[in-house]
Amino acid sequence: MDNLLFSDRSIWTMIHGIVLGGGALLGLAAALFSLGTIHVTDAADTADATAQNQARYLGWLLGFVAVALWLTVLMGTYVNFPAYRANPPAGLADLAHYPKALVQSSPRTMWLHSFAMETKEQMPWIAAILATGMAFVSTRHRSRLLHDASLRRFSMFLLATCFALVAVVSLLGIFINKVAPLE
């Protein structure tokens, strides 16, 4: 694959960060908007039918978000992270293929491991767990979510928390990849 534009490791990184993580972030933004704009009426009229329909799509969307986030954290932990933290042979001068060693080799970039990567290691798992709980509620308890304002407000908080967590770790991932990409 050396003669191709992207290496295997680079492609896995893009699938992890852009396809899955980015897809989850977009899905969370759409879900937040959808949940915030659902208009519920007490009567079984057209408006309520519209809200039911919107809530059904919200359930599918959050199902997609949960799956995307689980694939993101699993791929990040079991595919990308081992390549990132691999130890270079002793005395190797060019650390380009050893991102962890590369960022730790300079005081200016050391924070990319001690803060950015350490944050990325565990925090996204919380987002995946919360998104799964929300996906369950929005698919199995759609009617309750529609008609219970308190549950809807709390769900908005959980989705906003998920969005913030995924956005922060995505940004940190971009910083790391900018300085020490997996190539």
Partner: peptide
């Protein structure tokens, strides 16, 4: 479908996780 128990169990379970 009318009760909120299972929904809250999912959310509190996620918080515990």
């Amino acid at each position: 479908m009318l009760s909120n128990g299972a929904a809250l169990a999912a959310l509190l379970g996620a918080a515990i996780g």
